[in-house]
């Protein structure tokens, strides 16, 4: 069990990075649609989290976390549309995704836009636990 309150850490960093009023903050906010976040902002948030918690939050780790064990060639097609297997994986780390709605329609470009703050909190918690397990192994 981590002694870091990841939810609070992410909250303070997101509010500060995106310069949004604290009262508007909700974990179900979706980065792109609700917060106007660009990929560079996400990088900024990652770096800030890394500076504040003992977690290595690289974009590579984020990519592996999102893709899981789905092979590169099976995650999406040549047009960048995420496959059924890829969508199933994403639904485990982005449970708000409606797989029926997005089947055959969710593109790679759109995927990150659908990431929510709750998804980011889960990812950080997961990577933090991973790091702690490795340290104790």
């Amino acid at each position: 069990m981590s002694h870091y309150d990841v939810g609070e850490l992410v909250r303070s960093i997101v509010i500060d990075t995106l310069d949004i009023p604290a009262a508007l903050y909700r974990t179900d906010l979706v980065f792109s649609a609700d917060l106007g976040l660009e990929s560079l902002d996400l990088l900024d948030i990652f770096f800030r989290i890394e500076c504040s918690a003992p977690v290595v939050l690289t974009v590579e780790k984020c990519g592996r976390y999102l893709q899981g064990d789905v092979p590169d060639a099976e995650f999406c097609d040549a047009r960048g549309i995420i496959s059924g297997r890829g969508l199933n994986r994403l639904s485990t780390v982005m449970p708000q995704l409606d797989t029926a709605r997005w089947a055959g329609r969710l593109t790679l470009d759109r995927m990150l836009s659908e990431l929510s703050i709750a998804n980011l909190v889960s990812m950080v918690e997961n990577l933090l636990a991973e790091g702690q397990a490795a340290a104790h192994a």
Binding site: D72, L108, D109
Partner: peptide
């Protein structure tokens, strides 16, 4: 680089590299 990775339809693991 980002445009290239998008053109390649790189999955998340590759797109991060």
């Amino acid at each position: 680089r980002q445009a290239t990775l998008r053109a390649l339809a790189a999955p998340p693991r590759i797109a991060a590299r």
